[in-house]
């Protein structure tokens, strides 16, 4: 299984994330891979008995490895599993940022989980945090050869009731921030240490689905992603350089990354189109888009459809928009 997962990780580095927990009974005594309490905790969650056991999105279990270490056929099977799961969508997004302390002994981080749409919160949904070390050259006795152990679990930061981080957000646009830290062992290769975050429903009785995951090397986790001198959490556009933080509509989203900045979605520009100079275009296509909206009111928060500014959006607004377009008064 390890070889198959390694191959898949190389193939899909951005959409597949893993952690491996080592069974104390199947790992040599001189290895520091064992975390008996953590192993027990996570294994109990999925009713893990024998190994190898892989758990996919907290929902699908596969038990058993490659006979005679011929792993290629396992790779083909699990490739199919990956293909089945990767098409799924999630309402959650996880962003991480952090910084290694000057003495390199502590990593301080912030986890931001945000919701892109209203989503009924499942009871028992938590932010789960792990630390893993990637690419540890190890001897695998069962196959009589060495390999790169991928994403070996080093810590389970949210293990136990006292450390749980219950998720509380359920509406579009909401986000939840958790700040924390962990000790970085001197025996780890810091360049390969990852922080991993999940949104997962923890159930004692049954399945524990994972709704989203993210993992990043701690040294690749800049505190100021766009390099504009303003830390991500304080930056009104963390991925777009905007030192001046211009925010014309004062909605805390900077103009350079705000689709609703009042520059494109102006009154009458129903479909939000613009020319090469980012000037809004108001034409007959907007009439058609408005007509569609009246038939089926699916829109976005940026649209300004109340042309008459009477608190209602209806055919009268459409008529006035038609007049505006015909008169060229836009």
């Amino acid at each position: 299984m390890s070889f198959a997962l390694d191959t898949l990780l190389r193939e899909f580095p951005n959409t597949l994330m893993t952690i491996e927990w080592h069974s104390p009974g199947y790992t040599p005594g001189n290895s520091d891979f064992d975390l008996p309490e953590v192993y027990s905790n996570r294994a109990d969650l999925y009713d893990v008995g024998g190994i190898p056991h892989s758990e996919w999105n907290g929902l699908q279990s596969f038990v058993g490895g490659a006979s005679n270490c011929v792993w290629e056929y396992v790779y083909i099977d699990r490739h199919g599993t990956y293909e089945d799961l990767v098409v799924q969508e999630s309402p959650y997004e996880i962003i991480m940022q952090g910084e290694l302390s000057d003495d390199s002994e502590t990593f301080n981080f912030d986890i931001v989980v945000s919701l892109e749409e209203d989503y009924g919160l499942e009871s028992g949904t938590n932010i789960e945090l792990f630390v893993a070390e990637d690419s540890i050259y190890s001897y695998w006795a069962a196959c009589g050869e060495s390999h790169m152990a991928r994403n070996v679990g080093r810590a389970y930061l949210t293990m136990g009731e006292d450390n749980r981080i219950p998720l509380t957000i359920n509406s579009a646009g909401q986000s939840q921030i958790h700040s924390g830290s962990f000790a970085v062992s001197g025996s780890w290769n810091t360049e390969q240490v990852k922080l991993i975050a999940l949104v997962q429903q923890l159930n004692d009785c049954c399945e524990s689905p994972v709704f989203q995951a993210n993992a990043e090397l701690i040294l690749d986790m800049p505190i100021d992603r766009d390099g504009d001198g303003i830390n991500n959490l304080e930056d009104n556009c963390p991925d777009d350089e905007n030192t001046a933080q211009e925010d014309i509509d004062d909605d805390q989203i900077g103009d350079v990354c705000d689709p609703c900045n009042g520059l494109v979605y102006v009154l009458g520009n129903v479909n939000g189109d613009a020319n090469d100079g980012y000037d809004p275009i108001i034409d007959v296509i907007d009439l058609l888009a408005f007509s569609d909206y009246l038939d089926e009111p699916i829109g976005n928060e940026c649209q300004m459809l109340d042309i008459l500014e009477d608190g209602m959006i209806n055919q009268w607004d459409l008529l006035v928009l038609a007049d505006i377009i015909m008169s060229g008064d836009q």
Partner: peptide, 29 residues
């Protein structure tokens, strides 16, 4: 066409791709 494009934009804007997450219980022996 406009309606379909509009609907597609709205639907796609509201969700992210879910990362596939695997926990591998294994050993070195």
């Amino acid at each position: 066409k406009n309606n379909m494009n509009f609907r597609s934009i709205v639907e796609n804007a509201s969700r992210s791709q879910q990362v596939v997450w695997v926990e591998d219980f294994t050993g070195l022996n």
